[in-house]
């Protein structure tokens, strides 16, 4: 039993870590890199709370081995928005009160950002299907969907 040395990029920073072969990317982020923004809601890819991107591709961090991200670029919620300027998704989620407990919020932001990167003008249905794997038990999704649509509009330069 030996640990694996992994060199990768997380939120733009070059990082190195040692992990057990069975540890997931989510374990690595939370337990080794102190990035607890991605949450474990299920550990089986059913809830989306651990959403991150690897080389721009949206994935569930609980379904990726830590060892697999060698040489990749990982982005988590901690890498979204600047200290003095939130990402439009973050700002619209706050303005729309699109969170109650907030546990699903990091995953929703990461997932919605990935959507808007490939589809800047999604319909309500497109947002709903894209986010179907991000479970929220508090809001009934209404305000989340509105916030994502508003952020998309803002990013397209439309007036709110």
């Amino acid at each position: 039993m030996s640990k694996i040395h992994v060199s990768t990029q997380v939120n733009g920073d070059q990082v190195e870590f040692l992990c057990e072969p069975e540890e997931t990317l989510l374990d690595v982020l939370r337990d080794h890199l102190n990035l607890t923004g991605a949450k474990e809601g299920c550990g089986t890819g059913d809830c989306g709370a651990c959403s991150v991107t690897i080389d721009g591709r949206l994935v569930a961090a609980c379904l990726v081995l830590g060892a697999e991200v060698e040489g990749s670029a990982v982005e988590t919620v901690e890498g979204i928005g600047a200290p003095d300027a939130l990402h439009p998704l973050q700002r619209q989620i706050l303005q729309h009160a699109a969170l109650q407990c907030g546990i699903c919020t990091p995953g929703i932001i990461v997932a919605a950002k990935a959507l808007l990167a490939q589809n800047p003008d999604p319909s309500e249905q497109e947002v709903r299907y894209w986010l179907a794997g991000n479970l929220c038990r508090c809001t009934g999704y209404d305000k989340i969907i509105r916030a994502v649509l508003a952020a998309a509009g803002e990013m397209r330069g439309e007036n709110p």
């Binding site: 890819g45 059913d46 989306g48 959403s51 690897i54 591709r57 949206l58 994935v59 569930a60 379904l63 990726v64 997932a111 990935a114 959507l115 894209w130 986010l131 179907a132 794997g133 991000n134």
Partner: peptide, 9 residues
């Protein structure tokens, strides 16, 4: 198959 996240893999 699965969510958008699962589709990524």
């Amino acid at each position: 198959i699965g969510s958008t996240q699962v589709q990524g893999r």
